[in-house]
Structure formats: C-alpha cells, structure tokens
Design a protein around this nucleic acid. Structure first.
Length: 188
DNA sequence: AGCGGGATTTTCT
DNA sequence: GAAAATCCCGCTT
C-alpha cells in the first residue's frame, strides 16, 4: 500500500505534486499504466468547483476522505475523474486532465478509437481510455483495479502553472498545472 | 490551424 | 429550464 497521506494537503498543493505520478488500471484482464501530465485544482471556496455549493449527492465523494476517485458526468455523454484531496468533510479535488500512456497503449487506443496523443489528451478522453465511468465513483485509489502510484515530485522548473480550462467562474485563478513540453497536454 | 455547431442527460435553480 | 471542469466533425483559411 503506497503512502498517499500527502493527498490531505490542499488542492493547489497536491495538483502539481500529482504530475509525474502513475495510474495503474486493471481492466479486461489487462494492466494499463499511464503518467499524469496535466491537472487542475478545485476547492470548496472556489466558485468554479462542484463543491462550492455544498455537499450534495453528486459532490458527496469530494467531501469524503482523500485518496478516493470522484467521477462526474457532463455534457450528456462524458465522464471526468478527480483525485479527492484535503481533510475529511472538506470539499476539494484535483481533476486529471491528461495522461501519457506508458503500458498497454494498444488496448488504450483500441478503446478510444484514436491513436497517439488523441487517445488521452483530455479529461473525458482519458476516462474512456481507462474505462472509468460512474461505477468507479468513490473508488479507493490505494487498492483494487485502479491505483495511484506516487513518484518523486517534479522540480517546479518542469511545471507550467496557468488558468483552468472550460470554466466561467473564477476563471482567473491559476490552478492548472502541466508538465512543460509534454505532447499529451490538452492545450498549450 | 482555427472556428462553429451539434450531441445528449445529469444536476441544480 | 438552463448550464455544464467536453469532444468530434465539417468547413474555411
């Protein structure tokens, strides 16, 4: 069991810290492994966050213990996934916006029907690539078919920090982080 | 390469 | 009833 206690820190601290970490997924008898290359922080005091309007059936997982997966459905057809962070009863999470496939690339591209960066360079794309849907909401990332494997923190010189994508509220807060120059980042 | 529109349904006002 | 932490396709430069 890997040590995920750092996930109790605030979202804006954890978001850059998750860059370079590994997600390992077991599905259809195969093991997939990807590297996180782009993240965004969401906090309950942040108007762009689903948790801003309080604890609801949808946001319940965000207010639970850190180290769980928060999966939401949007635009009538897409799933996006977050790592729940912060203390229990505090609604915060880090959106995984893009990943770089390391192992099981063929399986990932087949599930997506796309190849290369198009397979995983977006939050809904990577969920489809890793077969993540509502059934995975609340999943404990320490164990089971989807695990978070911590890697050493990247130097800040390797990370670009900028504003988040696709939001209208609090659009000026620079809580998007990505690995500078990585081709799987969703937008430059 | 960049823009515009359509898809499609959950969630909250 | 409107908006939504998006993606894909087709059309224009």
């Amino acid at each position: 069991m890997t040590d995920l206690t750092f996930l109790r820190e605030s979202a804006e601290i954890v978001a850059p810290r998750l860059l370079g970490c590994i997600l390992e997924r077991r599905v259809d008898g195969k093991t997939l492994r990807v590297k996180i290359v782009e993240t965004e922080a969401y906090d309950q005091n942040d108007a762009a966050s689903h948790s801003y309007r309080g604890r609801t059936s949808r946001t319940d997982v965000m207010f639970g213990p850190s180290g769980r997966l928060y999966v939401y459905f949007t635009y009538g057809m897409h799933y996006c996934c977050n790592v729940v962070v912060g203390p229990r009863d505090y609604g915060a999470a880090v959106l995984i916006r893009a990943v770089e496939p390391l192992f099981g690339v063929g399986s990932i591209e087949k599930r997506r029907g796309k190849t290369g960066v198009e397979a995983t360079n977006g939050p809904a794309k990577l969920c489809q690539a890793l077969a993540i849907d509502k059934a995975m909401n609340g999943h404990n990332l320490h164990t089971g078919t989807l695990r978070l494997i911590v890697q050493g923190a990247l130097p800040s010189s390797a990370i670009t920090q900028t504003t988040r994508i696709g939001i209208s509220q609090a659009a000026d807060i620079p809580w998007r982080f990505y690995i500078t120059g990585n081709p799987f980042v969703s937008k430059r």
